[in-house]
Amino acid sequence: MTGHDVVFVVVGLLTAGAAVLTVTSKNLMHAALFFAVTLGGIAGVFLTLAADFLALVQIVVYVGAVAVLFMFGLMLTRAPIGREALDGKNRGLAMVVAGGLFVVLTTLLIGAFGDLPTVEVTGPRIDDLGIAIFADWVLPFEVLSMLLLAALIGAIVLARRESGESGEELTVTRIQMAEDRDPDALEGEQAALTGGSGGTGDAEEEHA
């Protein structure tokens, strides 16, 4: 076991521990902080694997941006709920599924890669990455930019305060689902529909 390996084991254990705490912590902010630690640990793993550039990106994008974003998210959506309620009722299911998944994946991985010889870790140079991204991977790169634009606009659409196109805050509405409608209500609705024709109805007549 080389020093390299020792470093990896330490960083790896740290990361794994932080991950466990992330998904089990009973405190919202703790969970978010442990998440940041996990991301940092993963950056460390990248470093031990000689992926310097990726480690950098990991720090900048994940620890720097994503984790912070999440914390803002958590704080903005702070609902009056107690600590004990952070886990839902599906914990048992989650245990079984996650445990099963880990066992299966590990078994398969060891079966496939367990007997590979130890190799020296070498990473590509950053300029290799630069060339590759604009030579071999330019199409996904361009598409990704479109995707990010869409995500940006989509996020704005969903998240911004409602101004709509009519400029006014809309009340929360519910589609009437077939399941929870009773006949009386149906009649009422129909009466409403036949009684008054709203603005949208008028518009429809014009086009018809």
């Binding site: 990361t15 794994a16 991950a19 466990v20 992330t22 998904v23 919202l28 969970a31 996990t38 993963i42 999440f70 998210g73 958590l74 959506t77 709920i81 309620a85 952070l86 886990d87 839902g88 599906n90 914990r91 299911l93 989650a94 245990m95 599924v97 996650a98 445990g99 998944l101 880990f102 994946l105 590990t106 991985l109």
Partner: peptide, 19 residues
């Protein structure tokens, strides 16, 4: 694999959407 499984656990067990 472990991190992945932990993530799966979180997805299924966590109640808060952000988590």
């Amino acid at each position: 694999a472990f991190l992945f499984s932990a993530g799966v656990y979180g997805v299924i067990a966590r109640r808060n959407a952000v988590l």
